[in-house]
């Protein structure tokens, strides 16, 4: 596998519970705004950020879905989802936003190796 000069941002936390998700998405957007190619990998609870039926939560709390939809405007179009974690959560890809790619668990180490830079949130 060729080494990618893209930045890999790993998202592992769900919306609403903490700031980790928002910080991960912000880091991805800032990097992309500066012209850095960015790929995303959603693992574990991070997959919750991609549910296509999510609402906006408490007043004053920013909804996640508009930001996920906005990623393509920042040319962030590679959204990997860990397949094992998806199934462990009893979810199917149909419940997620369009345009994601499933990645088998055994291919995750290779994905990390391929990226020169990784940020983990």
């Amino acid at each position: 596998m060729a080494t990618s000069d893209a930045l890999l941002v790993i998202i592992r936390h769900a919306p609403h519970g903490s700031n980790w998700l928002r910080e991960g998405l912000d880091a991805a957007l800032v990097a992309a705004a500066f012209g850095q190619p960015v790929h995303l990998l959603f693992m574990g609870q991070g997959i919750m950020a991609l549910l296509n039926e999510q609402g906006s939560g408490a007043p004053g709390q920013k909804a996640t879905l508009p930001t996920i939809d906005m990623l393509e405007m920042y040319d962030i179009d590679k959204l990997w989802v860990a397949e094992g974690a998806l199934h462990a959560m009893h979810l199917s890809a149909d419940s997620l936003v369009e345009g994601i790619s499933l990645i088998a668990d055994q291919e995750i180490p290779g994905l990390l190796q391929q990226h020169a830079k990784i940020l983990n949130f």
């Binding site: 574990g44 860990a82 180490p109 990390l112 990784i118």
Partner: peptide, 27 residues
């Protein structure tokens, strides 16, 4: 080759996710 640093307990989800990401040459 990646150095993985785990800061959470072995039964945490961080630990599980790290296990999924460790490659053959990693530490």
């Amino acid at each position: 080759m990646i150095l993985h640093i785990l800061t959470k307990a072995p039964d945490s989800s961080a630990s599980t996710q790290m296990q999924q990401a460790i490659g053959d040459q990693d530490a």
